[in-house]
């Protein structure tokens, strides 16, 4: 099992990674972040994307879908933004990993696969 620091470093090791944050979406506060330098403020990204995650959860509620969100992919002109929700463990924390990737350098399929592994290993 990896701790938060290790998991964030592994995420930043992915090809094309711009920044990564581990976010508590009950408050929008970050448990940790790396990168983002000069491109985006990761704490702002965390707070703003908390609303994205909440909106999707609300959408599922309205649709009456008894299902969970595995990940959310947002494609910009020059970036990929990957949001991966952590499987709620014993503590019942509501957390997600937020990863920004450079579109021209990243391999989306590989990044998504590796993010799944990092998330599975992450112990908060």
């Amino acid at each position: 099992m990896a701790n938060i620091e290790t998991a964030l470093k592994e995420c930043m090791g992915l090809e094309g990674a711009i920044g990564v944050a581990l976010v508590d979406y009950t408050s929008g506060l970050t448990l940790g972040y790396l990168g983002g330098d000069g491109v985006m403020d990761m704490t702002v990204a965390a707070a703003a994307n908390t609303d994205v995650v909440r909106a999707k959860i609300r959408a599922l509620e309205l649709l009456g879908l008894r299902d969970g969100i595995e990940d959310i992919l947002i494609t910009l002109d020059s970036q990929y933004h990957l949001i991966r929700l952590l499987r709620s463990r014993t503590t019942g924390d509501a957390l997600f990993l937020y990863l920004a990737l450079n579109k021209s350098r990243a391999n989306l399929g590989l990044a998504r696969h590796q993010l799944r592994k990092i998330e599975a290993d992450l112990d908060v």
């Binding site: 408050s27 929008g28 707070a47 908390t50």
Partner: peptide
């Protein structure tokens, strides 16, 4: 209970 505290600070 559902307020986004980080967003509020920003």
């Amino acid at each position: 209970g559902g307020v986004n505290v980080a967003r509020l600070h920003l």
